[in-house]
């Protein structure tokens, strides 16, 4: 089982600046030797060695980075300790993408979106996922919790009115609660932007 991820950047990606922020690389032939490519035909391994721009071998996973386009990076990831565990692979993929996103941020490069796919060894796709855009997270979250959000703003305002507090104070209570809810939504959406959402698995 292995995972691939395509990371789309907003601008042309400076791979050297990005790699400088990642963990110390491992020599490509060593990393490739620990992957499914080790048993593949020689031309493929040779082409891969020429194409890959970074490799890392961790305690439980091996990771290759390629640059297929000006604004794209492609990742190949395998778990070497538990090669058939999809949970472990998803976990490693999330962790590695977070590292990459942090490296991109540290080198002032903006990631537009990330799409991932998980395959069995015979290249059958068994899961696919992506990072959700900010607007989509806000939209989904808003639709899911609109009733609760409205109640959160309306109930204190209605209570203020019922308790014979001035309408101005009730309006201020409603307004400030609404702003707090909106801020909360934005903070949460920002955090969830770096969470992989699997569309089917």
């Amino acid at each position: 089982m292995y995972a691939t991820a395509t990371v789309h950047f907003k601008q042309s990606v400076d791979e050297n600046a990005l790699i400088a922020k990642l963990a110390t690389p491992i020599a490509l032939p060593i990393a490739i030797g620990a992957t499914i490519f080790a048993t593949m035909p020689t031309p493929l391994a040779t082409a891969l060695t020429a194409t890959a721009i970074y490799a890392h071998v961790g305690p439980s996973s091996v990771f290759l980075l390629m640059k297929p386009g000006d604004k794209q990076l492609q990742i190949h990831l395998e778990c070497v300790l538990t090669p058939e565990s999809i949970l472990e692979l998803k976990h490693e993929l999330s962790r590695m993408l977070l590292n990459l996103a942090d490296a991109a941020e540290a080198s002032s490069q903006a990631i537009d979106n990330v799409e991932v796919m998980i395959f069995t060894h015979d290249a059958t796709r068994i899961a696919s996922g992506r990072y959700q855009p900010f607007a989509e997270i806000i939209g989904t979250r808003f639709r899911d919790t609109i009733i609760g959000d409205v109640l959160l703003a309306v109930v204190p305002a209605a209570t203020s009115l019922a308790m014979n507090v001035e309408p101005e104070k009730a309006a201020i209570t409603f307004g400030t609660t609404a702003i707090a809810v909106l801020l909360w939504l934005c903070i949460e959406a920002r955090r969830r932007q770096k969470v992989l959402v699997y569309e089917y698995s």
Binding site: T4, T6, L44, Q74, D122
Partner: peptide
């Protein structure tokens, strides 16, 4: 048949499987 998002290039592991 290999479907998926057209913006994503076919990964090298898939190429290896096609050769096999």
């Amino acid at each position: 048949v290999k479907g998926g998002n057209s913006a994503n290039p076919v990964p090298p592991a898939t190429i290896a499987v096609l050769i096999e």
